[in-house]
Structure formats: structure tokens, C-alpha cells
Design a protein around this nucleic acid. Structure first.
Lengths: 207, 207
DNA sequence: CCATGTGTGGCACTGAGTGCCAATGATGGC
DNA sequence: GCCATCATTGGCACTCAGTGCCACACATGG
């Protein structure tokens, strides 16, 4: 094949477009029927493809959830990486979460629907755990860099430093999770304020 | 039915015994083949029962995992409830985790096997999330009681206080998780030290 | 000896996920 | 325009998880 890059990205483009379309239909069904009650045949038919083809675009039903959850991960990681170096890791994490908070508050309806789905449907628990892992994997190294004394980093793999970074990232995510969960079923609450409350309960957020 | 209490507990006794036996066989299979590769038919056959009967003792494959994970939850909750009131919530949580740390270190082999299973097998992620929830549900109210100014508690449901407690419990669990994960694949490490490292990275552990 | 309740197994079904294969359709070379 | 090629697609059949239904076995109590 002489077609190299250009075709490659054309394929990806088409693939992405199809995936988005499938996702759109899937979430309409999820919102009306719930996740567990929605079959892949329904999703495939709504998207106008065969069951078999669906599985060529998505590895499984889970991925319809994961996609949404992981999306914002890179944004948060990027935001975290760009926080000023003199900021405490905790405050930097809080600030980095700003992008998901804003996103959730602007699309409050969908965000709440998603959150409630995540709370009530047993079938998505695996996806939630998966989300936690991927975000931790993404954030922990950036936190680690921030914890290192800025002098010599990347020496030998330092287990103790890794645990610290992972603990920090994991705790922050736990706070985000708690805030979002409570926010989901209190329509008049502010997610931003709840997240401040949650993270502030662990460590002071100034500096 | 004239048979009341005595038969009731006899039933439970038998049921428990059967469950334990099934669990024993299941974990032998998990350890040798992994979780996802083990079918329920295999477990049922090993335990000497039909597939159909298996589902009368366990709601699903997940429950074979959950059982092990949730077991220690009540112990931790009890330990937490009995920590001195002048101890900080964080230090109290660290101390309460002592029971799982000791248990893990005395049965190091099995604990490591379990941990690695939880890390690598996609099929158990839902169970891990389930574990997180149950422990959070268990611990958060006790933490909440500890956070309340000891004067008037149980006023009106206080959302902000709930978020704080849940954030604290969730963060502590994230630390425990991080410590256990790292511990699992560093055979010469001390789980207790790792947990101190993790939780100490968030908040000081004295007091 | 009979009625009842409980545990058990078999059978058939739905739904997720996978491997295999044949048909279709777009593209590039001639 | 025509043919070779390659990727996408859909159909089919299979495994495995999980559930509902029904029939059989067994114990107990009257």
C-alpha cells in the first residue's frame, strides 16, 4: 500500500465519527432505560450496524462508559502539569480538577444522569474502578515530579516516593468522587463548593 | 411451621459451611488459573454441586471475591469506633487499618495472590469498586461522629459534614489501596511502613 | 401413609463476548 | 474501464454468566 499517513488519519477520522455516533445513541438509551437494561443489540440497531460490527468499534459495553469517564483525564493531567511550582500538590490538584467541575456544572443535566447511573447500576462498577486506575496512573507521575526536591529527579525507581504520589493522587480522586456523588443528588448544591469542602477536610487548600 | 429459631440457625450453619467449602475450592482454582479463566462449572464441580445449585449459594462469580474483601470491614469499623476520642480522625483511621495490615502480613502469600488478582484480572474490577463502597459506607459515619463537635450530633442531615467524612474515609482507603498494591509486588517491603508512608504523605500521623 | 416444605438438578432461555468465513465495497495499478 | 487487493461488514455458531421454571428427592410432622 502506497497510502501512508493520510489514509491512516482518514481511517481514524471515520472511526472516530462512527464511535461518536454510536456513543450518542447509546447514551440516549442509557438515559431512558438504564445501563443494565440496555442490550448491545439495541445500541447496534439504533446506530444502524450489526451486533458483530459494534464489537469491532468497542471492546464491550463497558467502553461506552469508560469513554466518557476517561475523556477529561488528559485535560486534568495537563492542567496539573501547568500549575505553578510553588503551589502545594493538594492545591494544585484542586485547581486541576477545575476543568471537570466547570464541565460538570455547565452540562449539569447529563453529568447528574451519569453520576446517578454510576451510583445505581451494578454493571458499571468495573468501569468506575477502571476510571480510578487510569486517572491515578495519569496523575501520580505528575504529582511525583512535584514532590521531588526539584534537584535530582528520575534517579532509581523510588518505591516510597511512588507510594506517596499515588496516595496523594488517589486521595484527591476520592474527594472528587465524594463531592460528585453528593452533588449528583442535591440539585441546588455547588460542585465547586462541595469539592472545596471535601478536599479542605483533608488538607488546607491555600498555597 | 413449628420449627422456629433452632432450625433457623441450623440452616444458617449448614449454609455457611457449604459456602466456605465452595470458597475454598474456588480460591484454589483462582490461584492456579486466574479468576477470568475459571468457569463456574469448574467451581461447582470441584465443590461437588451442580451449576444451578452454585447460584443458590452465591449471587454470582463476583461474590466469591467480595466475600473475602468485605470480611474485614466490620473489624476495621469496630476498631475505628474504639479509638480514643482525642486522636485525630486520620491517625484513628491509620490505627484501625492495623487489623488488615496484621492479617495481610501474617497470611502474606494469600494476601499477595489476592492483590495481584485484583490488579490484573479485569473481571474483578467491579468487586473492587464494590469493596470501596461498602467500606466507605461503613467508615464514613464513624468518622462523621468523630468530626462532630461532640456536642449536638444527629441534628438535621448535614450535607457538608457528610462530604467531609466521606472524603476522609475515601482518602484513607485510597492510601490503603496504594500501599497494598505496591506491597503486593515488592516481596521485601513492609505493608505497615508503606501505609505509614502513604498516609503520612497526606497528613501527619501523630495525634 | 400422606401433606408440606426445602434442597437439588435439569432444561431452556437471554445476553455478553469471540472466532471464523463469506460477501461487499473502496482504492490503486494497469 | 478492468482487475487485484485490502479493509469493513455481517452472519453463524460457539462459550460462559445468569435466571426462570419445573420436577424429583428427602425429611418432618400429623
Amino acid at each position: 500500500m502506497t497510502t501512508e499517513r493520510s489514509t491512516e488519519s482518514l481511517r481514524d477520522l471515520a472511526r472516530h465519527a462512527v464511535r461518536d455516533e454510536v456513543l450518542r445513541h447509546a447514551w440516549v438509551l442509557f438515559a431512558s432505560q438504564g445501563f443494565d437494561a440496555t442490550t448491545i443489540d439495541q445500541v447496534a440497531e439504533a446506530a444502524g450496524m450489526s451486533r458483530r460490527t459494534f464489537f469491532r468499534y468497542f471492546s464491550g459495553k463497558d467502553e461506552l462508559i469508560i469513554e466518557k469517564l476517561v475523556e477529561a483525564g488528559e485535560l486534568v493531567a495537563a492542567a496539573l502539569a501547568e500549575r505553578p511550582a510553588d503551589e502545594s500538590p493538594w492545591a494544585a490538584l484542586r485547581a486541576a480538577f477545575g476543568v471537570v467541575v466547570r464541565s460538570a456544572e455547565t452540562h449539569a443535566e447529563q453529568a447528574r444522569t451519569l453520576r446517578i447511573l454510576l451510583r445505581d447500576e451494578p454493571g458499571v462498577r468495573g468501569s468506575l474502578e477502571e476510571w480510578r486506575r487510569r486517572w491515578t496512573e495519569l496523575l501520580a507521575p505528575i504529582v511525583a515530579a512535584r514532590l521531588a526536591p526539584a534537584g535530582r529527579r528520575a534517579k532509581r525507581p523510588d518505591v516510597r516516593a511512588d507510594v506517596r504520589a499515588e496516595a496523594l493522587a488517589g486521595s484527591a480522586l476520592a474527594c472528587l468522587d465524594a463531592a460528585q456523588t453528593v452533588w449528583a443528588d442535591h440539585p441546588r448544591s455547588s460542585l465547586s463548593a462541595l469539592l472545596d469542602e471535601a478536599m479542605g477536610a483533608i488538607l488546607p487548600l491555600d498555597r
